Amino acid sequence: MEKKYINDPLVYEVINAVLELPEFKKDSVDYMIDFANPLLFDLEMDGDNFYGYAEKYFGEFDKVAFENQIKALKYSYYQKGKINNITLVDYDLTNIKTDQQFDSLNQSLNKYLPYVAISFPIFNKQKNTAFISYHYDCGFLCGYGKKFFVKKINGKWQIILVYDEYIS
């Protein structure tokens, strides 16, 4: 499978805006994992609760369109130079064929601690609200994550609902 790079300028606008929000800017990391799959969210386990929030915050909500956005991004990657003040760390799953290769790839991330991983924003039809997940990793049993909705209000992306939060 070949890597698919994200070209949509709106995606980078949202990612850069999220990284500038005070609750994330404090992390002050140099590295971000270059993998846009929203792997931090499991529709199988959490779908019913999520869809209730999506209907409320997305306005006109299309479940099929949402799920198609997720499927299309399974092997998507950010482009270097499009995310401000951060170095993208290659996290190439396109050639992984064994658990050992996957474990090795995950172990290689330790040299980039602390780092963040940010999912591709999943947009509503109007593209003014998005669901996104954020994970900060600072080592073994050190990190946290959030899943949240952002909305463009008065020209700025703002968090309107933190859907889920965890600390590791």
Rank of each mutant, 00 (worst) to 15 (best):
K3W: 01
K4A: 11
N7P: 01
D8K: 11
P9N: 12
V14N: 01
V14I: 13
V14W: 07
E20L: 14
L21Y: 02
F24K: 12
K25C: 04
K26G: 03
D27A: 04
S28K: 15
V29H: 10
M32Q: 05
A36C: 13
L39H: 12
L39A: 14
L40Q: 14
L40V: 02
F41V: 10
F41W: 04
F41G: 06
F41E: 08
M45W: 08
M45G: 14
D48W: 07
F50A: 12
G52A: 11
K56A: 02
G59S: 05
G59K: 09
G59P: 08
E60W: 03
F61M: 07
D62H: 07
K63D: 10
K63M: 12
A65W: 04
F66K: 05
E67D: 01
E67L: 09
Q69F: 05
K71E: 15
L73I: 11
S76V: 05
Q79A: 03
K82F: 09
N84Y: 06
N84Q: 12
T87H: 10
T87Y: 08
N95L: 04
D99Y: 03
D99Q: 11
D99E: 10
Q100W: 04
Q101N: 08
Q101A: 09
F102R: 13
F102I: 00
S104P: 00
L105Q: 06
Q107G: 02
L109G: 01
L113C: 00
Y115Q: 02
I122E: 08
I122H: 04
I122V: 13
Q126L: 10
K127G: 05
K127I: 04
T129K: 13
F131Q: 05
I132Q: 05
S133C: 05
Y134C: 01
Y134H: 08
G139M: 09
G139P: 07
G139H: 06
G143P: 08
G145T: 10
F148H: 02
F148Q: 01
F149R: 08
V150D: 02
K151P: 08
I153V: 12
V162P: 00
E165A: 12
